[in-house]
C-alpha cells in the first residue's frame, strides 16, 4: 500500500500539490492528464528521482520520502526504453539482479524466464539497437519486473510506439498484472488507454489530483466541473436550483431532484433522447433545432440548439430515421441521469 500525504513541489511555472493519494496493494492505477499536468513529475517523486519540498511518502509502512531511488525497491519503465546500449538483452534484463549481487546462474535463469514472459524467447544475445521500439519496451518491462518490486511505475511507456504495437503491449501489461498482481502506477495522456487498463484512474490537471476513482464513478459522480470537462462532458451549465427547477442563463430543466442552491449541472448525452416533433409536448420535452451533425463510430453526435444552449446528444444509427441540420426536433430528457455539483460553501 502506498500512501502519499501533502506532497508539494514548486517549479517556475507550476506547482504540484497532492493532499493525499492511496494506492491499494495489487492495484493498477492510472494517472491521467495532459502534458504539463504534473503526472510525470508526481511519478518521479514517487520513484525518488525528485524530492518533494513537503509531504511524506509511505510504502508498506516504510517512510520513503528521503530514501534514494536505488534503495526504494521500486521499478520504473520509462517513455523511452532506455536499455543499456553496451549490454545485450539478457544482460539488460538481469542488470537489477546484478546490482543486488545475485549469482550469475540465478541471474541467467530468472532473466530467461522473464524474457519468455514478455514473449521474446530467442532474443537473449541480441543488442538493443537491433530491436524494434516495441521489442525494446518489452525488454524494458522485463527489466523492471524481474526485480519483483513493491511498486511498478510506468511513465507513458507506450506513447512513442506504433499504435498497433501499442495495443499488443497494453495487453501484455494487463496480462502480466493479472498473473503477478504487482502494484502498478501507470501514467498516460491517452484517455482510452487509461480507461481500458486501469482499476482506478487519477485525473491530474495543473499539478493537482482532481479525483481518483473507478471509470464508472468518474463519469457518474465527478467531484468537480474540471473532472467532468476533462472527461469530455460538453453539457455543463452553471446556474441554480429552486423548487425543483434548474435555471441558468442558457437553459432550464424541470423536475431536477436536488436541494436548492447554486452550482453546476452536468447532463451526459445518455440523459437525452432525440425525437421527431409531434403535436404534443410533454413535461420533459423541449423544442430545439439541430445545429450540427457529425458521425462517430456507429452513432451520430448531434448538437441541438435549445433556448440559448447547445446540447450534445448521441443517436445510434437507424436506417429508418434521418436527421438533417436545422431540422426542428424534440428533446426528451431524464433528469435522474444528470449530475448536480453544488458550489462549495464559501
Amino acid at each position: 500500500m502506498l500512501h502519499l500525504t501533502n506532497i508539494q513541489k514548486t517549479y517556475p511555472h507550476f506547482h504540484i500539490h497532492v493532499p493525499e493519494l492511496h494506492v491499494l496493494k495489487g492495484e493498477f492505477l492510472a494517472l491521467l492528464g495532459s502534458s504539463g499536468s504534473g503526472k510525470s513529475t508526481l511519478l518521479r517523486i514517487i520513484a525518488g528521482l525528485l524530492t518533494p519540498e513537503q509531504g511524506t511518502l509511505v510504502l508498506d509502512h516504510q517512510t520513503l520520502t528521503h530514501i534514494k531511488p536505488e534503495k526504494r525497491d521500486i521499478a520504473m519503465a520509462f517513455q523511452q526504453p532506455l536499455l543499456f546500449p553496451h549490454l545485450n538483452v539478457i544482460e539488460n534484463i538481469s542488470f537489477g539482479l546484478k546490482m543486488k549481487r545475485r549469482k550469475k546462474k540465478e541471474r541467467l535463469q530468472q532473466a530467461t524466464s522473464y524474457l519468455e514472459l514478455v514473449g521474446l524467447e530467442g532474443y537473449e544475445t541480441r543488442m538493443p539497437h537491433q530491436l524494434s521500439g516495441g521489442e525494446q519496451q518489452r525488454v524494458s518491462l522485463a527489466r523492471a519486473m524481474i526485480m519483483k518490486p513493491r511498486l511498478l511505475l510506468m511513465d507513458e511507456p507506450f506513447s512513442s510506439v506504433d499504435p498497433n504495437i501499442r495495443s499488443e503491449l497494453q495487453e501484455l501489461t494487463l496480462r502480466l498484472h493479472a498473473e503477478h498482481h504487482m502494484t502498478t502506477i501507470f501514467v498516460t495522456h491517452d484517455h482510452d488507454e487509461a480507461f481500458q487498463m486501469a482499476d482506478r484512474i487519477g485525473i491530474m490537471q495543473a499539478g493537482k489530483l482532481l479525483q481518483v476513482d473507478t471509470a464508472h464513478q468518474l463519469y457518474q459522480a465527478p467531484l468537480s466541473v474540471d473532472v467532468a470537462r476533462f472527461l469530455g462532458q460538453k453539457n455543463i451549465w452553471q446556474g441554480f436550483i429552486q423548487a425543483g427547477k434548474f435555471i441558468s442563463d442558457f437553459i432550464t430543466f424541470d423536475r431536477v431532484e436536488h436541494p436548492t442552491g447554486k452550482g453546476h449541472l452536468i447532463a451526459p448525452p445518455s440523459g437525452f433522447q432525440l425525437l421527431k416533433p409531434t403535436n404534443q409536448k410533454s413535461e420533459h420535452e423541449m423544442e430545439g433545432t439541430i445545429a450540427k451533425i457529425s458521425v462517430q463510430k456507429g452513432s451520430y453526435r448531434i448538437l441541438v440548439r435549445v433556448h440559448a444552449a447547445q446540447i450534445e446528444t448521441t443517436v445510434p444509427f437507424d436506417p429508418h430515421i434521418t436527421w438533417t441540420p436545422n431540422e426542428p426536433v424534440l428533446l426528451r430528457y431524464q433528469a435522474d441521469h444528470f449530475t448536480w455539483l453544488p458550489d462549495p460553501l464559501a
Binding site: 528521482l49 531511488p69 521499478a75 543499456f84 542488470f95 546484478k98 546490482m99 543486488k100 527489466r143 523492471a144
Partner: peptide, 25 residues
C-alpha cells in the same frame, strides 16, 4: 541524462553506475 535514472531504478548506486554503465560507454 539518458541512463542515470534507469540505472538507479534498477537498484544501482553511484559506484555501480559508474563501473557498469558509465565507464564502458
Amino acid at each position: 541524462n539518458t541512463w542515470w535514472d534507469a540505472a538507479r531504478l534498477s537498484g544501482a548506486n553511484r559506484f555501480q553506475y559508474m563501473r557498469e554503465i558509465v565507464l564502458p560507454l
